[in-house]
Amino acid sequence: MSDLESDPPILKVLLLLGLVLVGFALMVDVRRVSWGNFMGNSLKSSRPTETCQGEIRGDIVLSREKLAAFLTISERDPKSRVQEILPQSYCQLPTIEVRAGVVSEREVYPLAFDPHTWLIVLYEGEEYAGYQFRFQAPE
C-alpha cells in the first residue's frame, strides 16, 4: 500500500494548509522588505541632525548626584533654579521656535557615567520647559 492511500485525509489537509500559510508568509515578508527598501532609498533623511553650535566645553559632564538633583525641578520653574545645579553646559543646540513667538534655547549635558547619552534641557525665556535624553551613536 502506498503512502497516498495510507495517509489519513487530515494529513493532506495539513500539508495543503502549510503551503497556503508559507505562501502568505512569503507575501508578507516580501511586502515588508520592499517597503523597507522603498523607505530606505526614497524617503530617508538628507536633513542634518541637530549638533552643537558655538563654544564646546569638553570637560563638562553631569554626575549622578547632579542629575538626581536636577530631576527634582518641575517644569515651568525659573531657569535660574536649574542653573544653580547645572551652571555650565557642554554646548548649546541652535535656538528654535516651537511655539509661535517664543524662542527656545537648548543646553546639552553629557552624562559622566554614560558619555554617549546627552541630557538636553529646553528653556523658553527665563522659564525651564523640560528635558529629554538623547542617545548618541558611538563614533
Binding site: S2, D3, L4, D7, L14, L15, G18, L19, L21, V22, F24, A25, L26
Partner: peptide, 20 residues
C-alpha cells in the same frame, strides 16, 4: 507515488518552518 508523497511531506514541513 511513494516518492511524491515523501516530497509533499518535506514541502509541508518546510512550509511550516518558513512560516514560523
Amino acid at each position: 507515488m511513494v516518492r511524491i508523497i515523501g516530497i509533499e511531506k518535506c514541502i509541508g514541513g518546510l512550509a511550516i518552518a518558513l512560516c514560523t
